[in-house]
Amino acid sequence: MDMFNFIMALGMACAMAIMLARLFAGPTLYDRVLAANSFGTKTILFLLVFSALSGRQDAIDIAMLYALINFVATIAILKFFRYRSLEISLAQMSLRRAVDGEDEA
């Protein structure tokens, strides 16, 4: 089982490396955000396999935390690049949307 888990961890590391390549190469911002999010998912899987491999329970807790932070970080990056600020309220957002219309730039 340890051998198999080791191969799994190697595979996850390969997938993470490919995601990093897209993160550096991605022509648009959204490619990079997508690659970062996907990289996070693979990191979570890597941590889980690592926890099974080494028998350390704490890695699962770290993976759970990483899953939460990964999601919030993706949304926060998108919000920042849309409004150029993180201190914007929901009311201001809908106002902006109403002013911009469907903003099909």
Binding site: T28, Y30, V33, L34, N37, T41, I44, L48, I60, A63, M64, A67, L68, N70, F71, T74, I75, L78, F81, R82, D103, E104, A105
Partner: peptide, 24 residues
């Protein structure tokens, strides 16, 4: 962890796609 990934992963994908679409 599986439940969290199942709920957040499609939402994040939709968020990125929607942001790209809204940005033109």
């Amino acid at each position: 962890v599986g439940l969290l990934l199942f709920l957040t992963s499609p939402t994040a994908t939709h968020a990125v796609a929607n942001a790209a679409h809204r940005a033109g």
